[in-house]
Lab assay of single mutants.
Amino acid sequence: KILMCPEHETERINMYCELCRRPVCHLCKLGGNHANHRVTTMSSA
C-alpha cells in the first residue's frame, strides 16, 4: 500500500521524522514543518 502525505496529497510518504515520530514526504522535509528535523528512510524506521 502506498501512503500519501496528508499535507501534500499528491506526494508519497517516503521518510520518517524522528523528532515528531511521524511519516513525512520530501516536501515536508524541504520546506515544511520538518525542514530542520532529523529524518530517516521509511525502511529504516
Rank of each mutant, 00 (worst) to 15 (best):
R22F: 08
R22A: 12
C28Y: 00
L19H: 12
G32Q: 10
A35W: 03
H8P: 00
Y16S: 07
E18G: 07
L3E: 15
M15G: 13
G31L: 04
H37D: 05
L30M: 10
A35L: 08
H8C: 01
P23R: 06
Y16P: 08
H37W: 02
N33W: 06
C25P: 01
T10W: 04
C17A: 00
N33C: 09
H26Q: 14
T10K: 14
S43E: 15
I2C: 03
V24R: 02
T41M: 07
P23L: 04
M42C: 10
M4A: 05
N33Q: 14
L30W: 05
G31H: 09
H8S: 01
R22G: 08
P23F: 05
E7M: 06
C20S: 01
E7W: 03
G32D: 12
R22V: 11
L3P: 07
L30Y: 02
E7L: 07
P6V: 09
P23Q: 08
I2N: 12
T10Q: 13
N33G: 13
S44M: 07
H34C: 13
R22Y: 04
A35I: 15
Y16W: 10
C25W: 00
M4R: 06
M15T: 09
C20R: 02
H34K: 02
I2T: 08
M4H: 07
T10F: 03
N14H: 14
C5H: 00
A45C: 02
H37N: 05
E18I: 01
E11C: 01
R21M: 08
A45K: 04
C20P: 00
T41P: 09
H8D: 00
L19Y: 13
A35C: 08
M42D: 13
K1G: 04
C20D: 03
P23H: 08
H26V: 11
L3Q: 11
H8T: 01
L19E: 15
M15A: 06
R21N: 07
V39I: 06
E7I: 15
E7A: 09
T40Q: 11
N33E: 12
K1Y: 02
N36I: 05
M15C: 15
T40G: 13
M42T: 15
E7P: 01
G32R: 07
R21P: 03
E9I: 10
E9W: 03
E11R: 01
R38T: 14
N33I: 09
E11Y: 15
H37C: 11
G32H: 04
C5S: 01
C5E: 01
K29A: 12
M42K: 14
A35F: 02
H37E: 10
C5T: 01
G31I: 05
H34G: 04
N36Q: 13
Y16G: 02
R22L: 11
T40S: 11
H34R: 02
H34S: 03
H8V: 00
K29Q: 13
K1W: 02
P23G: 12
I2G: 08
T10S: 09
E9Q: 09
I2P: 03
H26E: 11
P6C: 05
R22M: 06
P6L: 06
L30E: 15
K1C: 01
E18R: 03
H37P: 05
G31A: 11
C5M: 00
L27R: 12
H26M: 04
M42G: 15
K29L: 13
K29R: 11
C28V: 02
E7R: 08
V24W: 03
L27M: 08
I13W: 11
R21E: 15
H26A: 14
L30S: 14
S44C: 05
C17S: 00
E18C: 05
R21L: 08
G32F: 04
T41F: 05
P6N: 07
R21D: 14
V39G: 14
A45V: 08
R22H: 12
L27Y: 05
C28N: 02
H26L: 06
N14W: 05
H34W: 01
H26I: 00
V39S: 12
L19F: 04
R12S: 03
H8F: 01
E9K: 15
T41C: 08
S44R: 08
T10E: 10
H26Y: 15
R21F: 02
Y16Q: 03
E11Q: 09
R21A: 12
L30K: 15
M4S: 05
G31Y: 06
C28I: 01
T40C: 09
C20V: 01
G31C: 08
V39K: 14
I13A: 11
R12P: 15
N14A: 10
T10A: 07
S44K: 05
V24L: 07
M4N: 08
E11W: 02
K29W: 07
